[in-house]
Design a protein around this nucleic acid. Structure first.
Length: 137
DNA sequence: GCCAACGTTGGC
DNA sequence: GCCAACGTTGGC
């Protein structure tokens, strides 16, 4: 199993909205970046990901699970764009802020730090465990 | 609100 | 196929 990170601006699609969708989940649409799309194509059902709020909050707030593998993005007719479906699994008791991530040596290689603009990105096993611990799980 | 970093587009 | 111009993202 692999780990991922999904980034969203709170005003566009928030963790609360994701939670409200329950086990039915929702497609992670709107991605218009090849790198991000390619990562989604690599995702398998059962993979887990972090849900990160960009811009104002800048923190990892919860864990999501992939419930449908890559399929055409319903928000466009352009068949280049695909997306996966995800559902909220659980919130982190203590959200992990970007400042914490940047100041932690173990997380210095995270894509979130190195390429802040990529909206869908892979997370290493060790990074996953570190953040889970920081988040209080 | 600014601006750096990055990705994409289109002219040549 | 290169590269300048432009648009977007997201941290600060």
């Amino acid at each position: 199993m692999r780990y991922w990170l999904f980034k969203s601006e709170t005003s566009t699609w928030s963790w609360d909205q994701q939670v409200a969708k329950g086990d039915a989940g929702e497609e992670w649409d709107g991605v218009r970046n090849y790198q991000a799309r390619n990562f989604m194509r690599d995702m398998k059902i059962g993979d887990l990901g972090f849900f990160y709020h960009s811009q104002k909050d800048r923190e990892i707030v919860g864990i999501v699970e992939i419930i449908a593998e890559a399929h055409p993005d319903s928000t466009t007719d352009d068949d280049r764009w695909e997306c996966v479906d995800i559902k909220a699994v659980k919130a982190l008791p203590k959200p992990v802020h970007l400042d914490q991530i940047k100041s932690d040596e173990r997380l210095s290689e995270m894509v979130l730090v190195k390429n802040s603009r990529l909206s869908v990105q892979p997370v290493q096993d060790s990074e996953w465990r570190t953040i889970i611990a920081l988040g209080g799980l």
